[in-house]
Design a protein around this nucleic acid. Structure first.
Lengths: 261, 261
DNA sequence: GTCTATATTTGGATAGAC
DNA sequence: GTCTATCCAAATATAGAC
């Protein structure tokens, strides 16, 4: 995992759009007004890599111990400092964890989004889905503790944090929803499948991989290949032989095909 | 969920093989020798439904809050008693939680196992898999908080509890492994699929359903139908048209077909 | 059997030295 | 910026009354 700390902070690959590293999106309602600076990378750029170290450490612990099991002490150990130092950068445990989750959501969405944008415009809907499958697996299994922290904890986080998180995750949900809709619009989705449920089952299979996969279970490439094949043949109404488009759909196009908006 | 307490304890349907209700399998190494009786249903049969209430409550809380987030106070609330009363039936929080997880593993395995045993002996491998898909989804989504408690927490439980759990879960893994092997032996698994990875992806899609499904997402029957279709077409090398068995396999049978052992 | 104290431990958070 | 010392609020677990 490139963003796994293990002592060497390496100015992690995919950065959050909001730039810098001191994210702390100014959400209006967030407890009391901040009394302390919450050091947003005080001296322009390089100064405090510590904040990143703490975030990396928190992602690491969170993805393994779960929300309630994540202790500031464990994070501090992992980041090689004492627990109170965390409070120089974050106002509370909640705020730190929330930023980890938010970063996870950003990275997943950005990684998969970029993979899709890199495809030629004429790429078939099913091929786009396969590209998304690979990108999702890669950010989840190879690249980011933030991604696994998000995936494994979005169901266990307390109510308020959860609702704030929903907007961000909805964006990613929409990305997949569009992929599935395009497939359906092209008449390539087997008719007995429920669009939204198939969507959730597919993404679920990918998400669950975080629970079991490690390199000893088979190479990452094998996982990708198997997942793609499973999804492709599982969804396709064409049964990967030339079959006539399914009846009732005129030329497989119910809405105008919408590429990247 | 039939075993969801919600005040009315109703002598839940699927009971654990070990019978009774006071399970407490006498594992040799389990901390100190018990100093207190740990009331194994003191008066033969009916006496203490309380123990069941506590277990149901614990399953409920555990499946929602996660291992570290499960408080004895919450369990007590749910079971309609005070927290210290729990210690009359269980020696510690950890022992209670472990019994919940163990019960979950038992019920899932038993439920799916029985569904398979009920099939005619000549049932095709793919049809057996589809039956297992339905049974797994049903115990997970409709029947048991114990099942979801197990599914959502087996990755977050502390080391020692986890290792003790593994034996039980391995049994269930074997059940699925056999299903997939039979399919492969019959030459019906598409050759580009990795057997074990496909297995994990399929079960993962089902497990993850606990994270998102509720009746508003579509009827349970729709979930089952979609999952079965996805799995059937995702795995099948026959592409659900009559296709010759894949090359290199003599009549689709590498090992003797083994039904229920 | 179940309750009301209460002892004990843990972990989040603050104060203030350096 | 980061530490040590400390406060405080839970939460597990026990004692002992009823």
């Amino acid at each position: 995992m490139i963003d796994t700390p293990s002592s060497i902070p390496r100015g992690h690959g995919q950065t959050v759009p909001s730039g810098g590293g001191a994210v702390s999106r100014d959400r209006s309602a967030h407890g009391k007004p901040r009394t302390r600076p919450v050091a947003k990378d005080p001296h322009g750029a390089k100064s405090s890599r510590t904040r990143e170290r703490i975030l990396d450490a928190a992602a690491h612990v969170l993805s393994r111990k779960g929300y309630a099991g994540t202790r500031l002490g464990d994070i501090a150990d992992q980041a090689q400092l004492q627990a109170p130092a965390i409070y120089y950068y974050f106002r509370s445990r909640e705020e730190l964890i929330e930023e980890v989750m938010w970063t996870g959501a950003q990275r997943v969405r950005q990684h998969v989004g970029q993979a899709l944008d890199a495809l030629p415009a004429e790429t078939a809907p099913m091929d786009r889905i396969c590209a998304a499958v690979e990108a999702h697996l890669r950010i989840e299994l190879e690249l980011s503790d933030f991604a696994t922290a998000l995936i494994r904890n979005s169901g266990q986080v307390p109510e308020d944090l959860r609702t704030r998180q929903l907007a961000e995750e909805a964006e990613y949900g929409k990305l997949w929803r569009d992929l599935f809709r395009d497939l359906d619009d092209a008449g390539e989705l087997r008719p007995e499948l429920d669009l939204r449920i198939a969507h959730m089952l597919v993404v679920g299979a990918l998400n669950w991989a975080a629970e079991w996969w490690n390199p000893r279970r088979g190479s990452f490439e094998t996982v990708v290949r198997t997942a793609q094949s499973l999804v492709r043949h599982g969804l396709s109404g064409r049964s990967h032989l030339a079959e006539p488009p399914r009846p009732g759909v005129i030329h497989g196009q119910r809405h105008p095909a919408r590429r990247t908006p």
